[in-house]
Design a binder for these strands. Structure first.
Length: 114
RNA sequence: CGAGUCGGCCGGACGGUCGCGGCAGUCGCAAGGCUGUCGAGGAAAGUCCGGGCUCCACAGGGCAGGGUGGUCGGUAACACCGACCCGGGGUGACCCGCGGGACAGUGCCACAGAGAGAAGACCGCUCGGGCUUCGGUCCGAGCAAGGGUGAAACGGUGGGGUAAGAGCCCACCAGCGCCCGGGGUGACCCGGGCGGCUCGGCAAACCCCACCCGGAGCAAGGUCAAGAGGGAGUCCUCCGGGACUCCUGCGCAGGCGCUCGAGGGCGGCCCGUCCGAUGCCUGCGGGUAGACCGCACGAGGCCACCGGCAACGGUGGUCCCAGAUGGAUGACCGUCGGCACCGCUUCGGCGGUGACCACAGAACCCGGCUUAUAGGUCGACUCGUCCC
């Protein structure tokens, strides 16, 4: 888990970010980001989607733990107050942390304005 | 030393950097910080049985339905466990058994075969008669020993008997039924006697018998705030607020009813019985959830001693051991260990390479069962061979 202040908690927020946010796909994952119109002091919040297509429960848990650690180190790259959802694609279960981090970096590059 | 049987345990280790959740303490108005401590499994899995717990209007009788099925014990309970009995397998340790009833009734027994149940005569055996090319062949009567079919053909061996034969008769054996004696709590076992001379299998076919079973499930269920409002979220904003979406003992419309009772519960049906009034039914629109409790001290783990063949029980001591809720229990790096492959080898090993490291992730909690599982380790026992 991320610290409570940085978590997305409800199903409604997840679908909102995925539906209305900017999206960037990579072979292993898809990143959706919803950036507030005006910068605010609110914390950046994130959530993961790791579905059954990724693998069994052991594989899913391992994948989401890896993604969580990778995402934590990159939260400061997003404007404060933005919300982000990372969805793992079927290949993610077999990927190493390094490969996942690579895809995550490239996706964020395309989604975040500089 | 070799082959094997049964059971128990472990299932990566250490270090570094960065992190997460619970609890306790402490600092702080608060957000949060700091310190300490704990933090996945033997199957957490499949969700197949059994219970605890919670709610329901205490759940009664009959029918229907479901389950169990050697005996005795263990247990909260079980379809589980232990010991024993019976049958089968193994030289043995030991293993396997869906193990009540086939004289309560109904039904089925494929293929092959003449015949699959109070069955049957294909080859065959015997006697009589006809024909004969003297090899046989046809008709009638008797028979079921031998052959053949089959998973299974209705006792076996020997003798008597006969035209040939047959429990037709006799002896022994097997089997069935009944009786007596002995052992065992019991399933059952041991011994003896008598009887008709003989009776097949399938109940995981219907069925019969005995015993057991109320339903729904932690999204169970409860507490708190608001009082026609409240809560959650998004967007806009002139920061006063406004708009929209969703949820809810909420709303709107129509209907029925308040002891002459709408409607409903007691799993299904019947009987019976109970509940029942700002209540109930129908339609419209709307379906993954405000916070907290339940929620982790329990049929609990470990260690002694006692009882018991054992499963297990009793007494005493000691320990506190996950509790998340978009869901913690970890991520990365290094060293070691193991495995596979390659090279070298003085056969002891040495070096290198490898996105090689079993099955698998708690969600109310326990007891089981079943299934998955790389590798390692310990113990008891059996058989064979050799040595002393």
């Amino acid at each position: 888990m991320l610290p409570p202040a940085h978590r997305l908690r409800s199903s409604r927020e997840f679908s909102e970010v995925v539906r209305r946010g900017r999206r960037a796909g990579r072979p292993l994952l898809v990143v959706s980001v919803l950036i507030p119109t005006e910068p605010s002091g609110a914390p950046t919040r994130a959530g993961l989607v790791v579905g059954k297509a990724v693998g069994g429960s052991v594989v899913r848990s391992r994948t989401s733990r890896r993604l969580r650690h990778l995402l934590r180190d990159r939260l400061d790259r997003l404007p404060t107050g933005s919300r982000v959802v990372v969805r793992a694609l079927p290949g993610a279960g077999a990927a190493s942390s390094a490969a996942l981090g690579d895809d995550l970096d490239r996706a964020l590059d395309r989604v975040v304005p500089r």
